[in-house]
């Protein structure tokens, strides 16, 4: 079977699997699978958005969790102000309406991505990695310092957002909402990387010197990529806040950024659909290892090193390539 056909089969099969999962869970009486896979969908969304940065923009950001956290906090803060009927900063009313809050989460995350990206993209290589990490950590400490919104302890939502025509409190409804957003983001990303913008972006990632010689400002393309990735992560954050009905500074912590990166690599860098597989495998592995031993990280660490050293293309690559 040719690589392209395999890829199509794999994606179609994956899509079918995700569509049927709630019924399967119901049939087998394993309802918790729905919320487990909701988590997988949301992390997939975050991982795909990171894959746009790393796999297509060549931007090794170690601060991607910041945008997940921002999305989550925007959602939670608006919830809190709505719940306590006390306008934000005295003028902006809170809201529990998903159609309002989620786009806002995306916009705020994108705005932060613009700020952080403009500064970080002044550098490249190792500097870029460390600077994105440092900025994310700065926001982490900022969240810890937000006494009004729970500080270290985080903030509870008491219930999920409202979405017309849907009952988000129902796990299956919420599952399909997440599936919808993941699919939408995958579609957008897939078009994006094949578009003129995407071509230039991939070119700039491959050789910024050469792109420059073609008369193109590669950095602008990278910045837009960084912003789009941040926006995707912001949406993931809003969804995650709804799923767990809770946000905490841990969302922004750099280990979260690292885990997202692991998902991307595990699934396959620069493959968009790979990170979905990566997120699923990572979270399931975590779940399974944790069942046998509380010290699962001691196994996960070396597994990670082995994957890095020996399986460059990730699982998606293994499944779609011959040789």
């Amino acid at each position: 079977m040719a690589g392209g056909v395999r890829k199509t089969v794999l994606i179609a099969g994956g899509g079918l699997f995700f569509c049927l999962l709630p019924w399967a869970a119901h049939y087998f009486g394993e309802q918790y699978l729905v919320s487990l896979f909701t988590r997988i969908l949301i992390y997939s969304l975050a991982a795909v958005s990171l894959d746009l940065l790393i796999g297509y923009g060549g931007l090794i950001s170690l601060g991607h969790a910041a945008f997940v956290g921002i999305g989550g906090y925007v959602t939670a803060i608006f919830f809190q102000h709505s719940f306590e009927a006390e306008p934000l900063a005295g003028i902006i009313p809170g809201s529990e309406n998903a159609l309002l809050v989620w786009p806002l989460a995306v916009i705020v995350a994108a705005a932060f991505a613009f700020l952080i990206g403009s500064l970080s993209l002044r550098t490249s290589g190792m500097h870029f990695i460390m600077i994105t990490l440092a900025f994310a950590q700065m926001l982490y400490y900022f969240a810890v310092g937000l006494e009004k919104y729970g500080g270290d302890d985080g903030l509870s939502l008491y219930s999920r957002n409202q979405l017309v025509g849907m009952d988000l409190a129902n796990d299956v409804h919420f599952y399909f909402v997440c599936l919808f957003f993941l699919s939408l983001f995958l579609l957008i990303s897939d078009r994006l990387v094949k578009s003129r913008f995407g071509l230039v972006l991939r070119g700039a990632a491959s050789s910024s010197r050469r792109i420059h010689a073609l008369g193109i400002h590669g950095r602008r393309y990278k910045l837009i990529c960084f912003i789009i990735g941040g926006a995707g992560a912001g949406l993931a954050g809003a969804l995650l806040a709804n799923q767990t009905e809770y946000v905490s500074p841990g969302l922004l912590h750099w280990t979260m950024s690292g885990e997202l990166m692991v998902m991307v690599l595990l699934g396959g860098l620069g493959s968009l659909f790979g990170p979905v597989l990566g997120a699923a495998v990572y979270l399931l592995l975590e779940e399974t290892l944790a069942m046998y031993t509380e010290h699962w990280m001691v196994y996960l660490g070396p597994i990670l090193i082995v994957v890095v050293l020996f399986a460059k293309r990730g699982l998606f690559g293994l499944l779609t390539h011959r040789d």
């Binding site: 078009r191 994006l192 094949k194 578009s195 003129r196 913008f197 071509l199 230039v200 193109i216």
Partner: peptide, 10 residues
């Protein structure tokens, strides 16, 4: 400029 985000470049 190449800020065209949807149509396939090819």
């Amino acid at each position: 400029h190449n800020f065209r985000f949807w149509r396939n470049a090819m």
